[in-house]
Write a protein that binds this DNA or RNA. Structure first.
Lengths: 344, 344
DNA sequence: GAAGCACCTCAAAGCGCTTTGAGCATCCAA
DNA sequence: TTGGATGCTCAAAGCGCTTTGAGGTGCTTC
């Protein structure tokens, strides 16, 4: 069933039918009702590509995902972010187009996506510091929103980020206030902007309290469970082990817990752990009381908001870039407690 | 830059340019080279929607994801599956279109996707027993591949599944051979076909060894960490607690471990745990020796293969349905050991 | 040297939609 | 009665591509 057939069935011109369906005022209400119900009974829906060709819009939003394990992308927060964004897309009649690419193809992928014109806008995931994609997309003249942001890029672009620095600064200060002095940071890859900012927050808090930085207490790698486990394990067997850990993700925190368990250390009593909790749906931080004391911010909500921002940018071209900085919440769980004095 | 402009620049007709780019034999090799390199320098790429309109193909594959928490979808295996499938799509020039829908809209979403003609084929995620989507898609006459399969649907359709029954049967038997008699199954939602088959495997193994079924040792819910924790916790405080657990996912197993830790039970010594390991990239089952003894099968590989199967079906319409049943591997970790006799 | 045959290239139609600019009733005011 | 609004509806152009069917060129063959 296409427009021509439908309009023939109705005894109307294609124009009128199209107008009726798209809500133009030139069509009488009676006619519109007739058209709409006929479309429904005949299961008519305008062919997306034909509409795109005519309007020049694709009504789709692109997500480019480098899939190598060297990136933080096929990662734990990804599906929740997408779920949030996708919800908004659907409400607004947009499709979600995903390109999975190998690392080297990423730049190419953006070019292709834009030149083939199958998206009206793009979401940038996992920005690094000084991320080249931002200039690339600006040059391609396609609306985009960055989830996170990229330091050292001074041009104005749209982003939504959590205040990573402040969040980890608060977490660190919280531990210091509990008496901890040996605080470890098990971070994500510090090429990634968010990880770098978290590190900055950690360092700022230590400095503010006159605590010296020990490089042996800082690790950064992909945020997997084994990363948490191995890092914690090694640190705990060092001569002057940490009394507290800050984990960049709940998955990393799970790994830390495994290392603690192995040594029969009780979390919250013998050792404190704080993590960054993205509120991942299948990996909630407990269901009643939180497992981990955590800095918390919903990545799904971020997905929703990024979707809204991007659609707004697409539909009002030329509007100024929007930037939002969300504060993470600090929630108390049972994984933190006063520092135990080294048995002297 | 469009086809007309490019052909004018080259002094050729649009036909010739199009033919050259699409590899038809009517164009001389010299001309083709000239066209291809001109396309490259001018950043020309055919507009996807125009091509779709002309060919009737969209060169895209749809994934419909119900996002409510009542489903097993926005789940832990999803991003790895997508990563695998997307890799294959890209190699074959297909885009990946995702629709995130609320539960009630799911049927509607398939209709829309097909009628708007923006996909050439569909992947079905998380089939339930007797899943209505299979008949729906057949009626819509769109190629599709099911990741998993649906019991009680006798018509022939393409699917790729892991032998869930056999895997859990083996795992259960393995525990029985270690002397366990009180074996708990912390399963996914048993509406889901895979979970139901796992349960069947569990029951078959118990029966084969003359072990009575205790309903108190079977739980099924969404496969989250708290599900594992709560289930294990409650079972362990019962009068006749299990000595071994089978978890439907590594995430659930993490929850079980938390419950064990809480009671100072040592995994592998006091209590055994086996899980189903989908080889999720950011949540590997250890990096050297496995954390958990597990039945293992790569969901990313499944994504790749489903992608291949679907593309084959799209490009050779009318070819018979393909069905593949993969066996899971049983890997030994430190989470299992001989049953300890109750202190008598 | 004419006919025939490759081999290459072309103009134009058509894919299904939106949108422009024009046309036709109908109705009211002059 | 007529002129002009007003309110609907229409035919046709155009979006950028593929593909059909026709044509043109240069070469071989008798």
């Amino acid at each position: 069933m296409n427009l021509r057939e439908l309009s023939e069935k109705l005894g109307l011109s294609q124009t009128t039918v199209s107008r009726a369906l798209n809500g133009y005022s030139e069509v009488s209400e009676v006619t519109r009702q007739r058209v709409v119900s006929a479309a429904k009974t005949h299961n008519y829906e305008p062919a997306a590509h034909a509409r795109s060709l005519a309007t020049g819009q694709s009504k789709a939003i692109g997500h480019v995902i480098p899939q190598s394990t060297k990136h933080e992308m096929t990662n734990v927060v990804f599906s929740d972010f997408i779920a949030g964004a996708g919800e908004v897309y659907r409400q607004n009649g947009y499709d979600l187009v995903m390109s999975i690419v190998s690392d080297d193809d990423e730049v190419q992928a953006y070019h292709t996506l834009v030149r083939k014109r199958n998206v009206d806008g793009v979401i940038v995931h996992g920005p690094t510091r000084c991320d080249p994609r931002i200039d690339l997309l600006r040059n391609l003249q396609v609306p985009f929103v960055v989830h996170g942001r990229s330091s050292e890029i001074c041009s104005r672009y749209s982003w939504l980020d959590v205040n990573n620095k402040r969040a980890i600064e608060r977490a660190t200060t919280f531990l210091v206030d509990l008496g901890h002095r040996r605080i470890a940071l098990i971070n994500g890859l510090e090429r990634m902007d968010f990880a770098w900012r978290r590190r900055a927050g950690y360092l700022a808090a230590l400095e503010a309290h006159g605590i010296g930085v020990d490089r042996a207490l800082m690790r950064s790698a992909e945020m997997t469970e084994p990363h948490g486990y191995n890092s914690a394990r090694q640190m705990l067997s060092a001569s002057d082990p940490p009394t507290a850990f800050i984990a960049s993700s709940i998955v990393v925190a799970m790994g830390i817990r495994r290392a603690l368990e192995e040594r029969d250390l009780k979390m919250g009593r013998d050792i404190s752990v704080i993590c960054f909790d993205d509120m991942i749906s299948y990996f909630p931080n407990g269901d009643g009381e939180p497992i981990f004391t955590a800095t918390r911010s919903s990545v799904r909500a971020a997905g929703r908001r990024c979707g809204e921002m991007l659609i707004a940018a697409i539909e009002a071209p030329g509007s100024p870039a929007t930037q939002e900085l969300w504060e993470a919440e600090l929630v108390l769980g049972q994984s933190t407690g006063p520092a135990i004095k080294a048995s002297s």
